[in-house]
Amino acid sequence: MTSDNQASELENVEAVPGSPKQDPILKIDNIVRSFGGLRAVDVDHLEVQRGIITAFIGPNGAGKTTLFNLITGFDKPDSGKWTFHQLSNKESWTTNLSGLRPHQIANKGMVRTFQLTKSLAKMTVIDNMLLGAAEQKGESLRNALLPSRWQKQEKQILKRAEDLLERFKLSHMRDEYAATLSGGQRKLLEMARALMSEPKLILLDEPMAGVNPVLVESLLVHIENLRDEGVSVLFIEHDMDAIMGISDWIVVLAEGQVIAEGTPSDVSKNPAVIDAYLGSEIAEELKDV
């Protein structure tokens, strides 16, 4: 289900681990993280293409979440370097992300969600959303006590938040505490909240886990819409139907290493992938694709 011109650039990309992309938004080099004797992540080189949906798949414990943690600054790698590539008005520039702290990375335009949702339970849904917006004047102590300085911006943010809630079918919960949401709704809220900051690249850790099938459908549509609006999406998922359905590119991790990447059809034919999943249901699913 590849769409628009961005994805078409992928046709020329070789389906091998670490293959260079034509217009990468994120480049990762030699990133290693071990826990005791276990090398949870050990990736030589990886590039993520701008403007498409990239999926990370791999068996449980493959190191997907750990890799997310590393590149978003929530965990420190033993070694490694990664850079963010931005583009505006045909001008491009590179930002080094390694060594930055999580909030700095988020402010560069790379925002993540968590596998175990982190909805701010004792805040209302709308407050959760408002928090997501970046560069708020009223968030600095200097302006906090002077509403005149931030009220205008706050109104705009509020408008955007309400629109997003509408899109994610959460409007009716607007003033409820986030604690009252169901597990699936929290996933939605977390994703909507991340979108409030208008990220360039959004990293979603298992956004569909625990969400009921009806909502999954609409979630998938949201993700595709995001891509069509120009946001690059990187997401971890176990649900093979969803992955094969919407992703433009798939990166396969096993035991901390990238063992394969390619379009959905490349990957499903790749014997190394089948091997990694050997014996699991997913291996069966892959064969079916």
Partner: peptide
């Protein structure tokens, strides 16, 4: 509520 969530949102 959750400092990691706040961090992830750039605070």
């Amino acid at each position: 509520e959750d400092e990691d969530a706040a961090r992830a949102l750039g605070k």
